[in-house]
Amino acid sequence: MTRPFKIPESVLVVIHTPALEVLLIQRADAAAFWQSVTGSKDRAGEAWRETAVREVAEETGIDCAEGSRLAAGLRDWGLENVYDIYPRWQSRYAPGVSRNTERVFGLCVPAGTPVALNPREHTAQRWLPWREAADACFSPSNAEAILMLPQFTA
């Protein structure tokens, strides 16, 4: 059975504590790649926030859906990045699709919030001070978002 092509619209969710420690997760398919939560829309009509809530739950086990205790901590930063899709992942998209639009969110969680990684997607986690986290990211848009964290938490 053929897997449907990915939608070139995704979210980036910077998960952080009030002290600005940032959660980074290591990709299972690229061990040198540390990142925040990312993921594409499942369907064209899926709202950005819905995508963010789903991806956070799928990748970390953290529940930030409406009605949860962490729902108020999920904030849409109103930022979008448009970038070229990395060649190693190009085959996941329809022929001719070469750019992705990424919507940026922040999720503030209490220090010590448990994380349960999906082992098919990520193999390790670490919490780092925001500047160190930005330096550790493989993605320039992820690093830039982390560097903007203080202005979105002020």
Results as ranks from 00 to 15, higher is better:
residue 80 E to N: 10
residue 108 C to E: 07
residue 98 S to A: 14
residue 135 D to N: 04
residue 69 R to V: 15
residue 118 N to Q: 07
residue 64 C to D: 02
residue 130 W to D: 01
residue 94 A to Y: 08
residue 94 A to S: 11
residue 95 P to K: 15
residue 99 R to F: 04
residue 69 R to K: 14
residue 100 N to C: 09
residue 130 W to K: 05
residue 86 Y to I: 13
residue 97 V to C: 09
residue 102 E to S: 08
residue 108 C to T: 11
residue 121 E to S: 12
residue 128 L to N: 05
residue 83 Y to S: 12
residue 94 A to M: 11
residue 132 E to G: 03
residue 89 W to D: 07
residue 104 V to W: 09
residue 88 R to W: 08
residue 88 R to S: 12
residue 136 A to W: 06
residue 134 A to I: 05
residue 124 A to W: 05
residue 79 L to E: 05
residue 120 R to N: 05
residue 135 D to P: 00
residue 104 V to P: 00
residue 105 F to I: 07
residue 88 R to A: 14
residue 83 Y to M: 13
residue 132 E to P: 03
residue 102 E to H: 01
residue 91 S to I: 06
residue 61 G to Y: 13
residue 81 N to Y: 14
residue 135 D to A: 06
residue 102 E to W: 08
residue 104 V to F: 04
residue 139 S to G: 03
residue 137 C to V: 01
residue 132 E to Q: 12
residue 123 T to E: 03
residue 100 N to S: 13
residue 123 T to C: 07
residue 110 P to T: 12
residue 88 R to Q: 13
residue 118 N to A: 07
residue 99 R to Q: 09
residue 98 S to K: 15
residue 77 W to P: 00
residue 102 E to I: 13
residue 88 R to M: 09
residue 114 P to M: 14
residue 67 G to L: 14
residue 82 V to W: 11
residue 115 V to E: 03
residue 125 Q to K: 13
residue 77 W to H: 06
residue 76 D to A: 05
residue 133 A to R: 07
residue 141 S to D: 02
residue 65 A to W: 03
residue 68 S to A: 07
residue 67 G to Y: 12
residue 136 A to D: 03
residue 115 V to N: 11
residue 95 P to L: 15
residue 117 L to A: 09
residue 79 L to K: 11
residue 83 Y to D: 09
residue 80 E to C: 09
residue 98 S to N: 10
residue 132 E to F: 03
residue 138 F to S: 08
residue 96 G to H: 11
residue 78 G to T: 07
residue 118 N to G: 02
residue 110 P to N: 07
residue 112 G to P: 03
residue 123 T to D: 02
residue 97 V to E: 13
residue 72 A to Q: 11
residue 95 P to S: 14
residue 121 E to K: 14
residue 77 W to Q: 10
residue 122 H to P: 04
residue 92 R to V: 02
residue 62 I to W: 10
residue 117 L to M: 12
residue 120 R to H: 08
residue 116 A to H: 13
residue 109 V to P: 02
residue 130 W to F: 15
residue 101 T to A: 15
residue 122 H to W: 09
residue 141 S to L: 09
residue 112 G to K: 15
residue 72 A to E: 06
residue 129 P to Q: 09
residue 78 G to D: 05
residue 129 P to C: 06
residue 94 A to N: 10
residue 90 Q to T: 06
residue 65 A to V: 10
residue 138 F to L: 13
residue 110 P to V: 11
residue 68 S to K: 06
residue 120 R to Q: 07
residue 131 R to P: 00
residue 107 L to C: 03
residue 89 W to G: 01
residue 118 N to P: 00
residue 111 A to V: 10
residue 86 Y to P: 00
